[in-house]
Amino acid sequence: MSKPSPRKGIVRVDYPNYHRYRIDGRWAVGVTTALKGIPKDDALKRWSARVVAEHAVANIYDLKRMIDRDGNGPAISYLKELPNQRRDEAKVRGTEVHALAERYIKGDEIQVPEHLEPYVRGYAAYIEDWNPTTVHEELTVASRTHLYAGTLDSIQDIPGLGRVLVDYKTSGGVYGEYALQCAAYRHAEVYLDADGDEQPMIPVDAVFILHIQPDDYALIPVQADDAAFAAYLTAQANYVTNVQSRKLEKLLGAPLARPVGDAA
């Protein structure tokens, strides 16, 4: 009896805190996940170490009470998770800011969470300056050839710039790896329309990162050409070969037992 053929098509599978993609029944590499294949500098490590050190110094007596009450383990676990907690607390979704800002510009009455207000004003300034028209938002794109998929932020028509792909960033800085992310989106082969049907990827004239900051923004051109796409594919290959499922660690075996008796 033959096996049933895998389900054809591109599917985004949503979980409570993350999502994955399938292409014709196979798990695809997510574009942002593939960026883990880029060798990192020590900036993130330095930031994480500073967060933990500053918190420990400022809360040394609370930590001492925690250790006295529960032992070292809970205190160590708490400190290890601090950088992730700070990162998640500071995360602002650019797509959420975009949706609120468009309604704000139209004069709609909206309820804006207090922590998003400065970012909405920053995006509103971009709309007033450039007058973009949204073509697509939150568009799932994929490549069968390279087995990757992702969800780009926006495709817009901007007077004087043409039809462009815009990636929203609300991080403190804009980093080179973002260009590879944009290149993967631009070079995808298909996208999913509102009905979930595949359509040929939309060509764009240019690619930009919209760096949204409190009460301000910067529209930054991105080189998302063939060379950048090749660099993305290199990062994806490194992720699949060496990073995914902790493959390098699995090359190591268990320590040998010490020899005893005559073998010693």
Rank of each mutant, 00 (worst) to 15 (best):
M1N: 10
S2Y: 00
K3V: 05
S5D: 05
P6I: 01
R12T: 05
Y15G: 10
Y18N: 13
H19E: 01
H19K: 10
Y21F: 15
Y21M: 09
D24V: 04
R26Q: 14
R26V: 11
G30V: 10
V31Q: 09
T33G: 02
T33F: 04
K40I: 00
K40R: 15
A43N: 10
K45V: 07
K45Y: 08
S48M: 01
V52P: 06
A58C: 01
I60H: 14
Y61W: 12
M66E: 14
M66C: 06
I67Q: 05
D68R: 14
D70G: 05
G71M: 01
G71Q: 11
Y78V: 04
E81C: 08
L82K: 13
N84W: 09
Q85C: 03
D88P: 02
D88I: 04
R93G: 00
R93N: 08
G94A: 03
T95Y: 03
T95F: 01
A101R: 07
A101K: 08
E102G: 05
R103M: 10
Y104H: 12
K106N: 04
G107V: 08
D108R: 04
D108T: 00
E109W: 08
I110W: 04
Q111Y: 08
E114K: 08
E114M: 06
H115G: 08
L116K: 02
P118D: 12
Y119K: 01
G122K: 11
Y123L: 07
Y123N: 04
A124N: 07
A124K: 09
E128F: 00
W130N: 00
N131C: 05
T133E: 13
E137M: 10
E138H: 06
L139V: 11
L139M: 08
V141C: 13
V141M: 04
S143M: 09
L147I: 09
A149K: 06
A149V: 07
D153C: 11
S154M: 09
D157C: 04
I158M: 07
I158L: 06
R163N: 11
R163I: 11
V166R: 09
Y168C: 08
K169P: 13
K169L: 12
S171M: 07
G172Y: 14
V174E: 06
A179T: 12
A184W: 13
A188W: 06
A188Y: 03
A188I: 05
Y191V: 01
G196W: 04
P200E: 15
M201Q: 15
M201A: 14
P203V: 06
P203K: 00
F208W: 14
I209H: 00
D216E: 10
A218V: 08
P221R: 08
V222G: 03
Q223G: 02
D226A: 15
A227N: 14
A230M: 10
Y239Q: 13
Y239F: 15
T241G: 13
N242A: 12
S245N: 15
S245P: 06
E249L: 15
G253W: 01
A254C: 05
A254I: 12
P255Q: 12
P255T: 07
L256P: 03
L256M: 15
A257R: 09
P259A: 07
P259F: 01
